[in-house]
């Protein structure tokens, strides 16, 4: 099973392009869609789940055309949106029951069994009778995953699933996703948090200003940053100067000042040693190299 995206563009009524000439092929397994806020990830995802109409271009899922075969595609897709919340006044199990019925599970007995199974899987069985709107952020997200899964979709589309979760929940979520990715389905995971992707995705695409700026395996992305990640020991005075010149990934206070991790084509002056790049370093390096202003001081602290 594969999703083939050709020359996909979305232009909003103001004339602004949210997506521009996106070409992408997505195979089974987990696919990471990475990009800063406003890059066009959600737009792409909303197009994939048939909630939004593209301005031009084509999307095919195997033999199915996204525009013409909405009915079949909607049967294939499970979607977890960014700000998932549930109807107030429905219990956790009722919400799943509703989602199950809506994805065509007609036999009540089977459906309820599946609901319980999924609640077990996502660790919500104990709170099955609680009002869904009264769950914690992480629990809600897990409920979201459960409702995505209830129809046994062939394609799962998950938009920014870990935003706002505490580290424990985030870890739990990543493990859940990793388990899922072992099945023969496509999981499209859109995020701006690199950590969500690094461990599980076989392929990633980087989206910036509506364009695909990188596609390939996470390893290829990391390779590009090889020899461009540095560990620098700097005093408090030097810190500001370095911050102004390089994207600083982390700054850990130490005995003599700060231990910095930064990316740069050249070896910075001072007490510097090369470091082994990881996904995060690679993402920062890549984005910086294409001219994206990585204002890391104000960026999301989550990663």
């Amino acid at each position: 099973m594969q999703i083939e995206i050709q020359k996909l563009s979305k232009q909003y009524s103001g004339g602004k392009y949210a997506l521009r000439d996106v070409d992408l092929t997505i195979h089974s397994g987990m696919f990471g869609l990475l990009g800063p806020n406003g890059a066009g990830k959600t737009t792409l995802i909303r197009i994939l789940v048939t909630l939004l109409k593209p301005s031009s271009g084509k999307v095919r899922i195997d033999e199915l055309d996204l525009q013409r075969n909405r009915k079949q595609i909607r049967n294939l897709v499970g979607y977890l949106p960014q700000d998932f919340s549930t109807f107030s006044r429905l219990a956790v199990w009722e919400f799943l029951d509703y989602a199950g019925a809506m994805s065509g599970l007609r036999r009540k007995k089977d459906r309820l069994a599946r609901v319980d199974q999924l609640l077990e899987d996502v660790g919500l069985f104990e709170v099955r009778d609680r009002q869904a709107s009264k769950l914690s952020g992480g629990m809600k997200r897990r409920l979201g995953i459960a409702q995505t899964l209830i129809g046994e979709p062939r394609i799962m589309v998950v938009d920014e699933p870990t935003v706002g979760l505490d580290p424990q929940e985030r870890l739990r979520f990543r493990n859940l996703m990793a388990d899922l990715s072992r099945q023969d389905i496509i999981i499209v995971l859109s995020t701006h948090i690199v950590g969500d992707i690094s461990s599980t995705c076989s392929h990633v695409a980087l989206l910036n200003l509506g364009r695909i700026v990188f596609k390939g395996s996470p390893d290829t992305l990391v390779t590009q940053a090889q020899g461009r990640v540095w560990k620098v020991y700097a005093s408090a005075l030097e810190l500001d100067e370095l911050k102004a010149r390089y994207p600083v990934i982390s700054a850990v206070p130490s005995e003599h000042g700060y231990e910095l991790r930064l990316v740069g084509d050249e070896r910075p002056a001072g007490s510097v040693e090369p470091a082994e790049p990881n996904m995060e370093d690679a993402y920062i390096y890549f984005m910086q190299s294409i001219g994206y202003d990585m204002d890391l001081e104000t960026s999301d602290n989550g990663w």
Partner: peptide
């Protein structure tokens, strides 16, 4: 209003029905 406010309905709207 509810449809517009929550992404919840998008969860349902992405499902297959006319």
């Amino acid at each position: 209003k509810r449809d517009r406010k929550h992404d919840t309905t998008q969860v349902t709207q992405a499902r297959s029905y006319s």
